[in-house]
Design a protein around this nucleic acid. Structure first.
Length: 633
DNA sequence: ATAGGGTTAG
């Protein structure tokens, strides 16, 4: 039945028993069996009963091999058992063969596993599942899918043991199409959507960012375990629906599911995405109350959470409290200083990191460069960039180049930035040209902007921000026909300008605003506040800067649009809904506009409030008429 | 005969 009759010999040779001919093998096999038999501690009999006859009978019993396999401690022992099984014709027993395939995969010897599997004339569903699972476990997705396809082609019936492996392979490859196919197979074969399959599908859909499909299955699950809850919470956060993550977290606890550390890391991650300071404090309290140990991962996640919720000081406190830090923790802290505009502190932290014996990786250096560019530390940044390979053996990738283009660009050194881009030999991406385009916008250089635009359009950029930026530059130069062209291009490519929105957390509830929004219940008060603010602002010399409105409309309309920008509405609401002198924290999905930036500075002055704005790029802390970015953004 | 979830830049 088995083609692989002689595999035992090969196995013995691999097992360094050094036998070639069948004759010389026999005694060794005998001795292996003896050894194996002792090692397996079957304890089926007394010492007195250890007659050779008994041994021989044992060797003809499949249970003997199965026990032997279960008790194997390493690959060599598996090979030895294989050899014995082969000699005694025991590979014909499908249970023994399946076990062998399983243990070969367990010890990552997939060649051996597949050799055996391939030679099997009869396979049951266990054989398939063990083989498919084996490939999946070592991350050999091609063979995992290949074997699964073979299974279907042979007309075999996939079972609920095999499917989770294949579904997880789809998840890891983010192959949604294949994932849906497998989902379909479940119905086609009339398999029941059991817990394992369902949990795997939820995970797959969540990782493929099909969060609604994940949720649909999740809601259908009878028993939702902690892991699946965690998957859903993380999935929502990843899809930009961090609000839903936190809702789900509360729901999970209501249902009596107790979170563990991994779940907490996920919740902390969600809160970081959301940027909700009040929620961050609640989660931190919960973590302390439940006495979760502040390990590297949880600690690092919390550093990031506090930093992204607008409080670097709290982030630093967590950082200092952590007993163990890895390169990710250090990078997170450096990055935190970076996007809060405290480049100097980021630079100061770096040597501390080095002296603690931690080596930077490419992300640490990217964070450092980022910190330099946002604080205008041009020379320092360039020095890091040009010595990173020599000093830390980290070669610059496109992200590092992007940081440096940004660094030079912000400083107005556009020619140098362009020269740098031209010198890049690795593949240039949209981000690189996008950074350059941003710099052209800041310094109102239409000629260079067109160079960037050409490259971006060639790359078929799908980022509406790039088109908007370009149309902005044209609008600024009064080139309305070019603005129109860009708008046409956008509709051709089916890209829509991402609508801007701002939200603010008041009394543990978030309030979202879009431009000209009148849907808020306190809308009337908000606009009254806005009116009184602008009256006061005019007195201190504020003139709306219509440069930031890209539509080709008359000046008065522009002012109207500007007047009702979402960040202004959120701030006005913050002023009426929170106690005096408390900081106002708002979050904007896009980059804050220049006029709103001026507005924030003045409001911080006249209202005596600290205003903390998180935009798509960084934080701005407004206080007494000035911004932490030093208008360098 | 089955597992699975977690941290840093852009």
């Amino acid at each position: 039945m088995f083609k692989l009759r002689d595999r035992g010999l090969i196995a013995l040779r691999n097992g360094k028993l050094g036998c070639c001919s069948a004759h010389s093998v026999i005694p060794i096999v005998e001795s292996v069996i003896e050894t194996q038999f002792r090692q397996t501690s079957l304890n089926l009999h007394n010492r007195e009963e250890e007659s050779s006859k008994f041994h021989f009978l044992q060797r003809l019993n499949p249970k003997f091999y199965i026990s032997a396999l279960v008790n194997c401690r390493n690959l060599t022992q598996v090979r030895q058992v294989h050899a014995q099984a082969s000699v005694h014709g025991m590979l014909q027993n499908i249970i023994v063969a399946n076990k062998l395939v399983y243990f070969y995969s367990y010890y990552r010897a997939l060649d051996d596993a597949y050799g055996l599997f391939d030679g099997m004339c009869v396979r049951d569903s266990v054989s398939w599942s063990v083989m498919v699972g084996g490939f999946a476990k070592v991350g050999d997705y091609m063979n995992c899918f290949g074997t699964f396809r073979e299974l279907i082609r042979c007309g075999a019936r996939p079972d609920n043991y095999t499917l989770p492996f294949v579904i997880r392979a789809c998840r890891d490859l983010k192959n949604l199409q294949m994932g849906r196919l497998i989902h379909h197979i479940v119905y086609k074969f009339g398999l029941d959507l059991d817990h394992f399959v369902c949990a795997a599908l939820v995970d797959m859909y969540a990782k493929c960012r099909e969060i609604e499909d994940a949720r649909f299955l999740f809601d259908k699950m009878l028993e939702r375990d902690l892991v699946t809850w965690t998957v859903m919470i993380g999935g929502y956060a990843e899809c930009g629906k961090a609000n839903e993550s936190l809702v789900l977290f509360d729901k999970m606890r209501e249902e009596g599911v107790v979170p563990d550390k991994v779940a907490m890391v996920t919740v902390v991650f969600a809160c970081a995405k959301l940027g909700a300071m009040h929620k961050a404090r609640i989660i931190d309290d919960y973590i302390q109350r439940k006495k979760f140990q502040l390990d590297v991962i949880l600690g690092t996640a919390m550093i990031d959470m506090y930093a992204k919720c607008g409080c670097v000081e709290s982030a630093r406190e967590i950082f200092d409290r952590m007993e163990e830090k890895n390169v990710i923790s250090w990078s997170a802290m450096i990055a935190a200083y970076g996007y809060h505009g405290q480049g100097r502190k980021a630079l100061d932290l770096f040597p501390v990191m080095l002296s603690s014996g931690m080596l930077p990786d490419k992300i640490t250096l990217a964070s450092l460069l980022y910190a330099c560019s946002h604080a205008g530390l041009v020379d320092e940044g360039l020095r890091f960039f040009f010595s990173m390979w020599e000093d830390y053996s980290v070669g610059p990738d496109v992200k590092h180049y992007t940081c440096v283009v940004d660094l030079l660009g912000r400083a107005g050194r556009l020619d140098e930035a362009l020269k740098l881009i031209k010198s890049v030999t690795i593949e240039k991406d949209e981000g690189l040209w996008g950074a350059f385009l941003g710099a052209c916008r800041t310094h109102k250089d239409v000629v260079l902007a067109e160079k960037a635009a050409t490259s971006l359009l060639e790359l078929q950029s799908q980022n509406p921000g790039h088109y908007v930026l370009l149309s902005n530059i044209y609008a600024n130069a009064g080139r309305w026909e070019d603005v129109a062209k860009i708008r046409d291009l956008m509709s051709q490519r089916r890209l829509k300008k991402t609508p801007g929105w701002t939200w603010i957390e008041v009394d543990n509830k978030s309030h979202q605003f879009s431009v000209g929004d009148t849907t808020h219940p306190r809308s009337k008060e908000i606009y009254e506040m806005l009116k009184s603010l602008s009256n006061k602002l005019e007195l201190v010399g504020y003139v709306p800067d219509t440069n930031f409105v890209l539509h080709d409309v008359d000046e008065e309309l522009k002012i109207g649009i500007l007047y009702a920008h979402s960040e202004k509405l959120a701030i006005a609401f913050g002023l009426i809904a929170t106690p005096e002198h408390t900081p106002i924290r708002i979050i904007k999905n896009l980059r804050v506009c220049g006029d709103c930036h001026t507005f924030c500075k003045l409001v911080s002055e006249i209202a005596g409030r600290v205003i903390i704005v998180r935009d798509a790029n960084r934080f701005h802390h407004f206080k007494e008429g000035a911004c932490s970015c030093g208008d360098y953004w």
